[in-house]
Protein backbone atom coordinates (compact mmCIF):
# COMPACT_ATOMS: atom_id res chain seq x y z
CA UNK A 1 0.00 0.00 0.00
CA UNK A 2 1.38 3.40 -0.88
CA UNK A 3 1.19 5.55 2.19
CA UNK A 4 2.33 8.79 0.66
CA UNK A 5 3.06 9.27 -2.99
CA UNK A 6 2.82 12.95 -3.54
CA UNK A 7 4.26 15.03 -6.31
CA UNK A 8 7.41 16.34 -4.77
CA UNK A 9 9.20 17.19 -7.99
CA UNK A 10 8.67 20.92 -7.54
CA UNK A 11 10.04 20.82 -3.99
CA UNK A 12 13.08 18.88 -5.08
CA UNK A 13 13.60 21.20 -8.03
CA UNK A 14 13.91 24.17 -5.79
CA UNK A 15 16.17 22.39 -3.35
CA UNK A 16 18.74 20.91 -5.67
CA UNK A 17 18.47 22.59 -9.08
CA UNK A 18 17.28 19.46 -10.89
CA UNK A 19 16.14 19.82 -14.48
CA UNK A 20 14.95 16.78 -16.33
CA UNK A 21 14.15 13.13 -15.88
CA UNK A 22 17.34 11.17 -16.36
CA UNK A 23 16.07 7.74 -15.39
CA UNK A 24 12.53 6.46 -15.18
CA UNK A 25 11.24 3.16 -13.84
CA UNK A 26 7.69 2.22 -14.77
CA UNK A 27 5.66 -0.62 -13.25
CA UNK A 28 8.69 -2.80 -12.72
CA UNK A 29 8.06 -6.36 -11.56
CA UNK A 30 10.55 -9.07 -10.71
CA UNK A 31 10.01 -12.52 -9.22
CA UNK A 32 12.35 -15.34 -8.29
CA UNK A 33 10.34 -18.52 -8.79
CA UNK A 34 7.28 -18.08 -6.52
CA UNK A 35 8.68 -15.12 -4.63
CA UNK A 36 7.57 -11.75 -5.93
CA UNK A 37 10.42 -9.37 -5.02
CA UNK A 38 9.39 -6.24 -6.90
CA UNK A 39 5.68 -5.53 -7.25
CA UNK A 40 4.94 -2.70 -9.64
CA UNK A 41 7.70 -0.21 -8.80
CA UNK A 42 7.62 3.20 -10.46
CA UNK A 43 9.78 6.26 -9.82
CA UNK A 44 11.88 8.91 -11.55
CA UNK A 45 15.40 10.17 -11.05
CA UNK A 46 15.95 13.81 -11.89
CA UNK A 47 19.17 15.30 -13.16
CA UNK A 48 21.58 16.25 -10.41
CA UNK A 49 19.66 14.74 -7.51
CA UNK A 50 20.57 12.14 -4.93
CA UNK A 51 17.66 9.75 -4.63
CA UNK A 52 17.86 7.43 -1.64
CA UNK A 53 15.93 4.18 -1.77
CA UNK A 54 15.46 3.04 1.77
CA UNK A 55 14.08 -0.24 3.01
CA UNK A 56 14.57 -3.25 5.22
CA UNK A 57 16.76 -6.14 4.13
CA UNK A 58 14.88 -8.25 1.59
CA UNK A 59 12.62 -5.42 0.44
CA UNK A 60 14.01 -5.67 -3.10
CA UNK A 61 16.35 -2.66 -3.12
CA UNK A 62 19.39 -4.43 -4.56
CA UNK A 63 17.25 -6.32 -7.08
CA UNK A 64 15.90 -2.98 -8.25
CA UNK A 65 19.32 -1.44 -9.00
CA UNK A 66 20.53 -4.67 -10.57
CA UNK A 67 17.53 -4.51 -12.91
CA UNK A 68 18.41 -0.90 -13.76
CA UNK A 69 22.01 -1.73 -14.64
CA UNK A 70 20.97 -4.86 -16.56
CA UNK A 71 22.45 -7.49 -14.25
CA UNK A 72 18.96 -8.87 -13.74
CA UNK A 73 16.15 -8.97 -16.26
CA UNK A 74 12.79 -7.67 -15.06
CA UNK A 75 9.65 -9.73 -15.63
CA UNK A 76 7.64 -6.73 -16.79
CA UNK A 77 7.71 -2.96 -16.74
CA UNK A 78 10.09 -0.52 -18.35
CA UNK A 79 13.33 1.23 -17.46
CA UNK A 80 14.17 4.34 -19.44
CA UNK A 81 17.66 5.81 -19.16
CA UNK A 82 18.28 9.15 -20.88
CA UNK A 83 14.92 8.64 -22.57
CA UNK A 84 15.89 5.27 -24.08
CA UNK A 85 14.08 2.11 -23.05
CA UNK A 86 16.80 -0.28 -21.95
CA UNK A 87 14.82 -3.32 -23.15
CA UNK A 88 14.78 -1.98 -26.72
CA UNK A 89 18.58 -1.65 -26.91
CA UNK A 90 20.87 -4.33 -28.32
CA UNK A 91 23.90 -5.57 -26.38
CA UNK A 92 26.28 -3.05 -27.98
CA UNK A 93 23.95 -0.11 -27.41
CA UNK A 94 23.33 -1.21 -23.83
CA UNK A 95 27.05 -1.46 -23.16
CA UNK A 96 27.48 2.08 -24.48
CA UNK A 97 24.70 3.18 -22.13
CA UNK A 98 26.35 1.35 -19.25
CA UNK A 99 29.41 3.52 -19.71
CA UNK A 100 27.33 6.40 -18.40
CA UNK A 101 26.25 4.44 -15.33
CA UNK A 102 28.54 3.85 -12.38
CA UNK A 103 27.70 1.02 -10.00
CA UNK A 104 29.20 0.75 -6.54
CA UNK A 105 28.71 -2.81 -5.33
CA UNK A 106 27.74 -3.72 -1.78
CA UNK A 107 30.91 -5.76 -1.34
CA UNK A 108 33.13 -3.34 -3.25
CA UNK A 109 33.74 -6.11 -5.83
CA UNK A 110 37.41 -5.27 -6.34
CA UNK A 111 39.20 -7.88 -8.43
CA UNK A 112 41.21 -9.96 -5.94
CA UNK A 113 43.89 -10.95 -8.41
CA UNK A 114 44.67 -7.40 -9.51
CA UNK A 115 46.43 -4.51 -7.79
CA UNK A 116 44.56 -1.30 -7.03
CA UNK A 117 46.13 0.24 -10.15
CA UNK A 118 44.98 -2.64 -12.36
CA UNK A 119 41.52 -2.50 -10.78
CA UNK A 120 41.23 1.17 -11.67
CA UNK A 121 42.64 0.69 -15.15
CA UNK A 122 40.27 -2.18 -15.95
CA UNK A 123 37.09 -0.16 -16.72
CA UNK A 124 39.13 2.58 -18.39
CA UNK A 125 40.72 0.14 -20.83
CA UNK A 126 37.45 -1.69 -21.45
CA UNK A 127 34.98 1.16 -21.67
CA UNK A 128 36.99 4.03 -23.13
CA UNK A 129 39.22 2.39 -25.69
CA UNK A 130 40.77 5.55 -27.15
CA UNK A 131 42.75 6.50 -24.03
CA UNK A 132 46.55 6.55 -24.18
CA UNK A 133 48.71 5.04 -21.43
CA UNK A 134 49.48 8.52 -20.07
CA UNK A 135 45.81 9.46 -19.99
CA UNK A 136 44.97 6.23 -18.17
CA UNK A 137 47.73 6.84 -15.65
CA UNK A 138 46.59 10.45 -15.08
CA UNK A 139 42.99 9.36 -14.61
CA UNK A 140 43.98 6.65 -12.13
CA UNK A 141 45.98 9.16 -10.08
CA UNK A 142 43.17 11.70 -10.24
CA UNK A 143 40.45 9.37 -8.96
CA UNK A 144 42.73 7.95 -6.29
CA UNK A 145 43.44 11.47 -5.07
CA UNK A 146 39.69 12.18 -5.02
CA UNK A 147 39.09 9.30 -2.64
CA UNK A 148 42.16 10.14 -0.56
CA UNK A 149 44.13 6.96 -1.22
CA UNK A 150 46.99 8.00 -3.45
CA UNK A 151 49.46 5.68 -1.71
CA UNK A 152 47.45 2.52 -2.32
CA UNK A 153 48.32 2.27 -6.03
CA UNK A 154 50.30 -0.97 -5.90
CA UNK A 155 48.47 -2.67 -3.04
CA UNK A 156 46.32 -5.75 -3.45
CA UNK A 157 42.67 -5.50 -2.33
CA UNK A 158 43.35 -8.00 0.47
CA UNK A 159 45.85 -5.53 1.97
CA UNK A 160 43.17 -2.84 2.34
CA UNK A 161 40.60 -2.30 5.09
CA UNK A 162 36.86 -2.49 4.34
CA UNK A 163 36.57 1.30 4.18
CA UNK A 164 39.58 1.60 1.89
CA UNK A 165 38.17 -1.10 -0.39
CA UNK A 166 34.91 0.86 -0.65
CA UNK A 167 36.85 4.01 -1.50
CA UNK A 168 38.89 2.25 -4.18
CA UNK A 169 35.72 0.72 -5.54
CA UNK A 170 34.19 4.19 -5.65
CA UNK A 171 37.29 5.47 -7.42
CA UNK A 172 36.97 2.68 -9.99
CA UNK A 173 33.33 3.61 -10.53
CA UNK A 174 33.96 7.34 -11.08
CA UNK A 175 37.01 6.71 -13.27
CA UNK A 176 34.85 6.44 -16.40
CA UNK A 177 33.02 9.71 -15.63
CA UNK A 178 29.53 8.29 -15.20
CA UNK A 179 26.45 10.49 -15.37
CA UNK A 180 24.34 8.26 -13.14
CA UNK A 181 25.76 6.66 -9.99
CA UNK A 182 24.11 3.65 -8.41
CA UNK A 183 25.26 2.91 -4.87
CA UNK A 184 24.25 -0.49 -3.51
CA UNK A 185 24.47 -0.32 0.29
CA UNK A 186 27.58 1.91 0.29
CA UNK A 187 28.00 1.89 4.08
CA UNK A 188 27.17 -1.73 4.88
CA UNK A 189 29.73 -3.43 7.11
CA UNK A 190 31.57 -0.22 7.94
CA UNK A 191 32.03 1.46 11.30
CA UNK A 192 30.07 4.71 11.93
CA UNK A 193 33.07 6.97 11.28
CA UNK A 194 33.98 5.29 7.97
CA UNK A 195 30.28 5.22 7.01
CA UNK A 196 30.14 8.96 7.56
CA UNK A 197 33.28 9.43 5.45
CA UNK A 198 31.73 7.41 2.61
CA UNK A 199 28.52 9.46 2.84
CA UNK A 200 30.57 12.66 2.63
CA UNK A 201 32.45 11.23 -0.34
CA UNK A 202 29.15 10.49 -2.11
CA UNK A 203 28.13 14.14 -1.72
CA UNK A 204 31.54 15.36 -2.87
CA UNK A 205 31.38 13.15 -5.96
CA UNK A 206 27.92 14.45 -6.79
CA UNK A 207 29.17 18.04 -6.60
CA UNK A 208 32.45 17.45 -8.44
CA UNK A 209 31.24 15.15 -11.22
CA UNK A 210 27.65 16.53 -11.40
CA UNK A 211 26.22 13.02 -11.16
CA UNK A 212 22.66 11.95 -10.49
CA UNK A 213 22.62 9.15 -7.93
CA UNK A 214 20.44 6.39 -6.62
CA UNK A 215 21.62 5.31 -3.19
CA UNK A 216 20.29 2.02 -1.92
CA UNK A 217 20.62 1.74 1.83
CA UNK A 218 19.08 0.78 5.14
CA UNK A 219 21.48 3.10 6.97
CA UNK A 220 19.33 6.05 8.02
CA UNK A 221 22.33 8.27 8.80
CA UNK A 222 23.72 7.76 5.31
CA UNK A 223 20.26 8.33 3.85
CA UNK A 224 19.73 11.62 5.66
CA UNK A 225 23.22 12.87 4.88
CA UNK A 226 23.11 12.15 1.15
CA UNK A 227 19.46 12.37 0.08
CA UNK A 228 17.60 15.07 -1.78
CA UNK A 229 14.62 12.75 -1.95
CA UNK A 230 13.77 9.46 -0.28
CA UNK A 231 11.74 6.51 -1.51
CA UNK A 232 10.84 3.90 1.05
CA UNK A 233 10.36 0.34 -0.19
CA UNK A 234 8.33 -2.18 1.75
CA UNK A 235 7.62 -5.71 0.56
CA UNK A 236 8.65 -4.87 -2.98
CA UNK A 237 6.43 -1.80 -3.28
CA UNK A 238 7.01 1.94 -3.00
CA UNK A 239 5.62 2.61 0.45
CA UNK A 240 6.56 6.26 0.86
CA UNK A 241 8.12 8.99 -1.24
CA UNK A 242 9.09 12.38 0.12
CA UNK A 243 11.84 14.89 0.50
CA UNK A 244 14.12 14.61 3.51
CA UNK A 245 12.27 17.14 5.70
CA UNK A 246 8.90 15.43 5.22
CA UNK A 247 10.49 12.04 5.77
CA UNK A 248 12.05 13.05 9.08
CA UNK A 249 8.78 14.49 10.38
CA UNK A 250 6.61 11.60 9.22
CA UNK A 251 4.23 10.12 11.79
CA UNK A 252 4.23 6.71 10.15
CA UNK A 253 5.28 3.99 12.60
CA UNK A 254 7.22 2.00 9.97
CA UNK A 255 9.27 5.05 9.03
CA UNK A 256 9.75 5.99 12.66
CA UNK A 257 11.09 2.50 13.33
CA UNK A 258 14.08 3.34 11.10
CA UNK A 259 15.12 6.10 13.48
CA UNK A 260 15.13 3.83 16.52
Amino acid sequence: MNLKLKNIKSETLSSSNVHEIILEVNHLKKSFRDQEVLKDISFKLFEGENLVILGKSGSGKSVLVKCIVGLLKSDSGAISIFGKKSSSLNAKEFNELRQKIGFLFQSGALYDSMTVKENLEFPLRRMIKKLTENEISDKVNEVLENVGLKDALYKMPAQLSGGMQKRISLARTIAVDPIIMLYDEPTTGLDPITSDEISTLINEIQKKYKTSSIIITHDIKCALKTANRIIMLKDGEVYYEANVADFVHSDDSFIKSFFN
Binding site: N95, R98, Y111, D112, R126
Partner: peptide
Amino acid sequence: AELGSMKVSEQIDAMEVSST
Protein backbone atom coordinates in the same frame (compact mmCIF):
# COMPACT_ATOMS: atom_id res chain seq x y z
CA ALA B 1 37.12 -21.72 -6.06
CA GLU B 2 38.38 -18.61 -7.87
CA LEU B 3 35.32 -18.12 -10.05
CA GLY B 4 33.04 -19.13 -7.16
CA SER B 5 34.51 -16.47 -4.89
CA MET B 6 34.37 -13.94 -7.73
CA LYS B 7 30.70 -14.75 -8.13
CA VAL B 8 29.98 -14.50 -4.40
CA SER B 9 31.86 -11.19 -4.05
CA GLU B 10 30.09 -9.73 -7.12
CA GLN B 11 33.34 -9.43 -9.11
CA ILE B 12 31.72 -11.14 -12.10
CA ASP B 13 28.85 -8.63 -11.96
CA ALA B 14 31.39 -5.80 -11.71
CA MET B 15 33.06 -7.10 -14.84
CA GLU B 16 29.75 -7.18 -16.70
CA VAL B 17 29.00 -3.62 -15.61
CA SER B 18 32.41 -2.62 -17.04
CA SER B 19 31.18 -3.74 -20.49
CA THR B 20 33.28 -6.90 -20.29
